[in-house]
Each structure stands twice: as structure tokens, then as C-alpha cells.
Write a protein that binds this DNA or RNA. Structure first.
Length: 689
RNA sequence: GCCGGGGUGGCUCAGCCUGGUAAGAGCGCCGGACUCAUAAUCCGUAGGUCACGGGUUCGAAUCCCGUUCCCGGCACCA
């Protein structure tokens, strides 16, 4: 027996789950967990909704809701989506629970007790007009090293040097370029990651890690660059308060990324208490040398999360373990493997909540069977590089492989047996061909096991399909529908059912619902998920009665799928929640905006930005220069000469060195951007109401 | 512009870390067989300068350098 802890990256609670999340971090651990359970190992798989941080606040403001309402809503949606996908967590919780807060505080208290937390006064850029501190990267100024005048607060793009915002000469806010920036002192708690450099390096270099290349490279780079101490509090409102009631930290919150990781641990404790009725049940999974049993920790995530899980989280665990040790408590385990995936794209485009590119989980599962979706995702996982979801390929793989090769093989074997015997027949003497098919099952079992042990999921599902094809070959060669000798017929069908049974077990981690359905059609008792993985090679039991077989999968309707492909704008209204009443403005507010008709007289590329045009627009009494982010959406010749609507009294802003004196209005729906115009020719400078 | 990932038959992908009996799979195409099965299955043919150029090596899709194209992140979308 081996104990397997599986941590799954916490989905953020500000929007729906899409297939990118599923392929990147959700489906692989579910397959992995199901496999290990069938191996008889103890598995604990946890995750939850990540519910704190600025983006939640922003979302709440957008929708006129409270942050609490936003996270409640999306957490519930996450839970429903996971259920629909048959992704079974031992616990899928959330970071806004009291339990989580309490344990995060325990962890941070431990870090503080051990001297890993240091209070530092930072001189942070502050925008007095907006009354807020500015993150470094929203500050620009002149680089002290190379005099480049658009260096950012965290790095200078010209010379590549890393900077502090307060080193900049003439700093300004990119959010509000005219504001006088002040530097105000603000105190933050820092996690002294640098103190762990040697220990993390030793852990990285000395331990045997089965890490994938991408994970190793990322981690190596970080370590070589030298670990920086990181602030663990922020000047924001939505998040967990600091550990004690120290007034220094009033109005500050624990930085989300630190706190969300801790969820791996806090959720395990919560699982023990709430679902096991044993508040110590988490210990076998987490405490080092709890007993002699091998225990391994896996973290599943997409590539953007790698260093957080191979450096920062292990760092926190080391530091907190020091604190536990000081109190005579056992240390906690560090990650064993971090099987990070690349991204799944949608026909070449990245899934993106903000741009509305995506296929939402709840939407696709309304139309298609869970296992069909799981099959295509598993067969197309971005394990070694980005992969593409295309509807054509979805159609072809589901109909051609899942339904036609696998489903059909099971169905023909079962119906033949049903017609001829009604139960699992007794096999007679074995021929070379029979022998060969049995060997194929065995080889396949070994191959699939080997891949799964190494946390690889795409090769094994493909290998399993190969077994179905072998089954089809066998049945075709033996042609049981032509066999007259009853004993030989029984033998052939018995071997066919052996393959079917092996397929039910082998597919169980990947396709849990159809595997179970197949299990029942084989007349097997209980659930396939309780079957032992090693039973793959045991054949069916002769004389087991067989129920009436039904096709295992439904074919996808070609037109329906291809229609979806054509829509290609899956961001239409139904994805988003119906908008709550937007904040009302007064008529006077509206009147304050001076909208004018103008004509675009000239369009040029911005000299120093990929997405921007510099436009000249005649608005009657004057000509304005505007900077507009339309380059990716609207071709230059469509803009030239266009009659447009301009916000004429917007205060000027300098955007990457070019002044913009107003704003050109355009309607936006995902990637579709349409500049506004008038239906009739009308004089430049006309007001718009 | 900076950083990262990638370019393998019509399509989707494997192989690349650990160079050599590997240039592979599925789909698609073309031809044939079969009829138990959801017009499903099986057999066979064709199809690739492994982006381009150079280097290392006895030998490179695989390692190194350069070029080019694509994608992503960041900058940026008043």
C-alpha cells in the first residue's frame, strides 16, 4: 500500500470553469486518483475555490455585488461543474471558510515564530488622488541605469535590469499619468524565502524527482536567479487578515497566492475533521515518517503555476515544518511530483475568460456525455506541449475511436454472447490466436500501469484504444458468427469477453461512467471502481448471467457538433450570468461626457506597442490625436476616413510615449470589435446625446 | 520590445531529456474483405527534405549556434 496525496490547483472563483482548466489541472488528477484507488492505495485528493484577491473585488464592482456574493456564486458553480464531470474530490472546499483562516494563521504564526517573517517598511508608490498604493508594475519612470524613460517599476525593458519603483527618476502612474506620485511608507510582512535558498536547492538537486522537463527547467531557472524575499501582505481589502491584531497590518490582507497554497494542507485537516470524523486522519498523509508506509505528494496544475509549487509552497512547508518541529510535532511532507501540463487551446486560441474564448464545462455537458468529453480531453491532453481542442477532431475521435472502435467492440461481443449463450460461456482448449489476445491484454495492462505510475495520461488512453482494436481484429479473424462447433464458439466469445472485461477495468479511471455501465453488462457484481486493478488479467467468470446489452455510447450528431464549430463565438450571453442591475448613473453624469462626431484622417501604428494605433481625428473645430487599442481587431484601411464617435473631454493620457487626446468608441464582444459610426453623413463636431 | 513554448505526412498528435534496427500512431484519402455489431469492423496501398541554414559526431527529428514563422505571458488597449 502506498499513500497518495493529490493537490489540485485551486480554481479561482471569479468565473466559470472551462475546458482549459479541465485538461490542464482537473482531469489528470481524477484519473490518477481513481487509478490509485483501484490499486488499493490510500488516496486523498483535495482542492477548492480560491476566493480572495483583487480580481474578485473587481468582478464584484463590475456586477454591483459584494465579493462574498461573487465567490458564493462561483464556488457553487465550480462544485456543480466538477460533479457533472465526474471529478471526485475527497474534499473540494473554499478559502473563505473560518477553518481555512484559522489554519493559515497557524501556519503563518509558525513562520513568524521561526524567524521566517520579517516586517519591512516599503516605500511604495502611492497615488493620492485615487488614494491607493500602486503595484510596482503600474509605475513607470526613467531608468537609473540606462536613462530609458519608460522603465517599469519592477524592470527596465531597455536594459533588462530589475528595479525597485523608488529607484525610478520621475515616476508616474500608468493608470493615471498626470497624478503626482508620492512614495509612502507602508509596512508589510515578508517571507524570507532567501533563507531557504540552500535547503530548497538541496531538496531540488538531491532528492529523486520524476519531474517532467518543463517543471525542472522552470524551477532550475528560479533557483539560479536567486530566491527573493516576498511580501506576504498587501494593501487590499478582500482577503484574510494578518495573524494577530497588530495595528500595523490594519487594512492589509494576506497575499492570496500564499494563502491559497496553504489550502492544500488546511483542506486535508478539514477533510479529516468533517468527513472522516477523525481529526487526526490527515496525519498519515502529511506527517513525515508517520509509519513505515510510502507516501507521495502530487500536485496537478498548468504551467503558469510551476514555480509556485516547486519553490514557494515547498518553502512554506519547510519553514512551517521547522515550527512544528520546535513544538515536537512531526515535519510535513514536500511535493514528490508536480505533473504540470501545458495549455489546451481552442482551435489555436487560448481559452480566456476575459476575451470570452472558451468552452464552458456546464455548457458542453448539457449536450454531450461526460465520458465523451473526458475521452477527447484525455486523448488530447497538453502533456508535453500546448494542444488544441477542435470540434472536428472531437467529432472524429469520439465517433471514430470511442464509439466505433471501443463501444462497438464491446457491443458486438456482448450481443453475440447474449444471442448464443445468455451467459459467460465456458472456454475450451486455447489456440495460438487465443493465446495471443490474452498476451495482448497482459502487455496492455503493463503498459497502461507504467504510464499511470509516471503520471502520464495521454499515452495510456491511446494504448487502451489499441486493445479495443485488437479485440476487433480477433473477433473478425475468428468470425464467431460462422463457427458451428459450439465449444470453439464458446472459447472465442469467452476471450472476447476477457478483452471487454479488461477494457472495463482499464477505462475505469478515464471513463468512470461507461466503465461502470460495461461492468454491469458483464454481469459483474458491485462497481468497477472497487475492482482491483490487477484483475485486468482475470477473465470473466463462466456461467455468469448476462443482462440485455445496450450500446455503450451514443454517436455524436455530426451536424450538431459542426454547428458548434461554426458558432465559434462561445462567449455569447448565456455563458455569463445575467448581469445584475448595473450601477445607475445620473443624467448629469451622462451629460458630463462630451461625445462628438469625427472623421479619422490618418492611421499609423504606434511606434512602440503591438496592439495600438495612433489616429488623427477631425472633430470639427480641431484635430485630435488618439491612441486606440484596435490594431488586433480592426484593419487600418477600415479606419481611414471612418466617421466615428469620440469622447472629446476625456483627459489626455500618454500611452507608451504617445499622447492620446480622447477616446474612440467601439462596441466589443469578445474578439469582435466594431467602431461606432453614424447612419448618415453628419458634420464633424456634431454632438452626440 | 522583453521572457517562455513550439514548428514532424491533408488533420490531431507521439518520439527529442538518455543521438544509432523509428521516422511512428489514429483519423482522412484510395483499393479490397466481411456482415455479429450504433453503415460499425478488418486487410492493403499511397503520403513526410522531421521549418530553414550551419556546426558537433563515425552517425542527428533528437545536441549546439544562427535565421524564420506561429503561439502564450508581460509592456499596452482613456
Amino acid at each position: 500500500m502506498v499513500r497518495i496525496f493529490i493537490g489540485v490547483a485551486w480554481p479561482y472563483a471569479n468565473g466559470p470553469l472551462h475546458l482549459g482548466h479541465v485538461a490542464g489541472s482537473l482531469l489528470p488528477p481524477d484519473i490518477f486518483a481513481r487509478y490509485h484507488r483501484m490499486q488499493g492505495n490510500d488516496v486523498l485528493m483535495v482542492s477548492g475555490s480560491d476566493e480572495h484577491g483583487t480580481p474578485i473585488t473587481v468582478k464584484a464592482e463590475e456586477e454591483g455585488l459584494t465579493p462574498r456574493q461573487v465567490v458564493d456564486h462561483w464556488h457553487k458553480r465550480h462544485v456543480d461543474a466538477l460533479d457533472a464531470l465526474s471529478i471526485d474530490f475527497d474534499l473540494f472546499t473554499r478559502t473563505s471558510t473560518k477553518h481555512h483562516e484559522k489554519w493559515v494563521h497557524t501556519i503563518f504564526q509558525g513562520l513568524q515564530d521561526e524567524g521566517y517573517i520579517e516586517e519591512r517598511v516599503m516605500n511604495q508608490p502611492y497615488d493620492p488622488e485615487a488614494e491607493r498604493f500602486l503595484p510596482d508594475r503600474y509605475v513607470e519612470g526613467t531608468c537609473p541605469h540606462c536613462a530609458f524613460d519608460e522603465a517599469r517599476g519592477d524592470q527596465c525593458d531597455a536594459c533588462g535590469k530589475t528595479l525597485d519603483a523608488n529607484e525610478l527618476i520621475d515616476p508616474r502612474s500608468t493608470l493615471n499619468p498626470d497624478a503626482e506620485i508620492e512614495f509612502r511608507e507602508t509596512t508589510h510582512a515578508f517571507f524570507l524565502l532567501s533563507k531557504l535558498q540552500n535547503r530548497l536547492e538541496a531538496w531540488f538537486n538531491d532528492e529523486e524527482h520524476p519531474w517532467r522537463g518543463n517543471v525542472e527547467r522552470f524551477t532550475q531557472n528560479w533557483l539560479e536567479e536567486g530566491l527573493q524575499d516576498r511580501p506576504v501582505t498587501r494593501d487590499i481589502e478582500w482577503g484574510l487578515p494578518w495573524i494577530d491584531n497588530d495595528p500595523t497590518y490594519e487594512g492589509k490582507r494576506i497575499y492570496v497566492w500564499f494563502e491559497a497554497f496553504s489550502g492544500y494542507f488546511t483542506a486535508s485537516v478539514q477533510w479529516a475533521k468533517e468527513t472522516q470524523g477523525d481529526k487526526n486522519a490527515w496525519k498519515p498523509f502529511w506527517e513525515e515518517s508517520y509509519d513505515g508506509e510510502a507516501t507521495r505528494h502530487y500536485y496537478f496544475l498548468a504551467k503558469d503555476n510551476i514555480p509556485f509549487h516547486t519553490i514557494l509552497w515547498p518553502g512554506i512547508l519547510m519553514a512551517y515544518s521547522d515550527a512544528r518541529e520546535s513544538k515536537g510535532q512531526p515535519r510535513l511532507r514536500l511535493p514528490y511530483d508536480v505533473p504540470a501540463n501545458e495549455y489546451l487551446n481552442l482551435s489555436g486560441e487560448q481559452f480566456s475568460k476575459s476575451r470570452g474564448v472558451g468552452i464552458w464545462v456546464h455548457e458542453i455537458l448539457e449536450r454531450f456525455e461526460t465520458d465523451a468529453v473526458r475521452y477527447y480531453l484525455a486523448a488530447n491532453l497538453p502533456e508535453t506541449r500546448d494542444a488544441d481542442w477542435t470540434w472536428e477532431d472531437f467529432l472524429s475521435k469520439v465517433n471514430g475511436e470511442l464509439v466505433a472502435a471501443y463501444g462497438n467492440f464491446a457491443h458486438r461481443a456482448l450481443t453475440l454472447t447474449q444471442t448464443n449463450f445468455g451467459h459467460v460461456p465456458d472456454p475450451g482448449p486455447t489456440t495460438a490466436a487465443d493465446q495471443r489476445i490474452q498476451e495482448t491484454i497482459q502487455t496492455l495492462h503493463e503498459t497502461v500501469t507504467d504510464h499511470l505510475e509516471n503520471a502520464r495520461f495521454k499515452p495510456p488512453i491511446r494504448a487502451i484504444m489499441e486493445l479495443a482494436r485488437e479485440g476487433n481484429r480477433y473477433i473478425d479473424q475468428e468470425a464467431p458468427w460462422q463457427i458451428e462447433d459450439k465449444e470453439r464458439l464458446a472459447t472465442v466469445l469467452f476471450h472476447c469477453l476477457s478483452v471487454v472485461r479488461a477494457l472495463a477495468i482499464l477505462t475505469a479511471p478515464f471513463l468512470p461512467n461507461s466503465a461502470q455501465k460495461l461492468w454491469q453488462m458483464l454481469g459483474e457484481p458491485g462497481t468497477v471502481h472497487d475492482a482491483s486493478w490487477d484483475q485486468v488479467q482475470a477473465g470473466p467468470t463462466p456461467r455468469t448471467n448476462l443482462p440485455e446489452p445496450n450500446p455503450l455510447f451514443q454517436k455524436l450528431d455530426e451536424d450538431e457538433v459542426l454547428n458548434l464549430a461554426n458558432q465559434d463565438d462561445p462567449d455569447s450571453s448565456q455563458d455569463e450570468e445575467p448581469k445584475e442591475d448595473a450601477t445607475m448613473i445620473t443624467f448629469d453624469d451622462f451629460q458630463a461626457i462630451d461625445l462628438r462626431v469625427g472623421t479619422v484622417t490618418n492611421v499609423e501604428d504606434h511606434p512602440d506597442a503591438d496592439k495600438l494605433y495612433v489616429l488623427n481625428v477631425d472633430i470639427g473645430e480641431e484635430e485630435r490625436q488618439l491612441v486606440a487599442g484596435l490594431k488586433e481587431h480592426v484593419p487600418q484601411d477600415e479606419l481611414e476616413g471612418l466617421r466615428c464617435i469620440v469622447v472629446a473631454n476625456l483627459e489626455p493620457a500618454t500611452i507608451r510615449g504617445v499622447e492620446s487626446q480622447g477616446m474612440l468608441l467601439a462596441a466589443e464582444d469578445g474578439d469582435l470589435v466594431a467602431p461606432l459610426t453614424t447612419t448618415q453623413e453628419i458634420r464633424e463636431g456634431s454632438e452626440v446625446h
